[in-house]
Simulated scan of single mutants.
Amino acid sequence: MARRGDALHEHILDTAKHVFLETGYDRTSMDTIAARAATSKRSLYAHFPTKEALFVGSVERSQELFADRLGVPSEYAADPWEAVARFCGRVRQMLSYAPVIQMCRLGIAEAVRLPQAAAQIHDSFLLAAERPLARHLSDECGYATTEAATTAEGLLGVTVYPFLVGALFGLEKLCDTVPAAEDLDTDIDLTQIQQAVALHARTTPSS
């Protein structure tokens, strides 16, 4: 049965995301995406009038999927600080998913030509983690809004970003399937993350 409406729209985005990651922005054509999506060019252009619009749409799709898979800290533990540690671990775990790193590399490569899309990629995988962590620190750990944002950035900087830099340069082992949250304890050594978070827990403004 042929896809139509929203189903076709999402199918095109998912297909385009894979093609962009495989061949890069420059070498990807609308013809190729239409063929891979098994739809007509007319239908493709009806949903996305330009390749840039399709690229931006595929980035937004990636952002939605990443945020959904990440969730919020309170889902990871009842204790608010253990929830912070496990959430940081989940961010680290999700950044080991190869397509995430490939999308980040693509954003860096296209930062000059497509700054909006590059900024969206940054937001997709970095701010998508910082924002819920900051809200949790504010709501559950006693931080003022500004302090919560700064602390969230600092925690991720210590617990996650060194891995991200290594992964971008091909120095870390990546996986080709989406890491399951249920495998967090086996995929990630949480000890160092918990130690880093404990330093902040002892200096929380509410203590």
Rank of each mutant, 00 (worst) to 15 (best):
R86A: 01
A67D: 01
E110L: 12
Q102F: 11
P80G: 00
M94K: 07
F87W: 04
L44K: 03
F66M: 10
A46Q: 10
L95E: 06
E60V: 04
D68K: 15
D68N: 15
I101C: 00
E60S: 06
R61L: 08
K51T: 13
V72S: 12
A109L: 11
R36Y: 04
V91T: 10
V91Q: 03
M103L: 14
Y25I: 02
E52K: 05
S96P: 00
D26P: 15
G57F: 00
S96G: 15
V112Y: 15
Q63C: 06
G57K: 00
C88M: 05
R113N: 13
T50G: 02
S96H: 12
G107H: 07
G89I: 08
S40N: 06
D26W: 14
R92G: 07
G107V: 07
Q102V: 01
E52T: 15
S40M: 06
C104V: 13
M103A: 09
D31I: 07
R113W: 09
L95P: 05
D26L: 13
L70Q: 06
Y25P: 00
L65W: 09
Q102H: 10
F48T: 00
D79V: 01
E110D: 05
Y76A: 09
E64P: 01
V72W: 10
L44Q: 01
V91Y: 01
A98F: 02
D68A: 15
E82G: 02
V112R: 15
C104M: 15
P49I: 10
L65V: 14
A53T: 02
E75C: 08
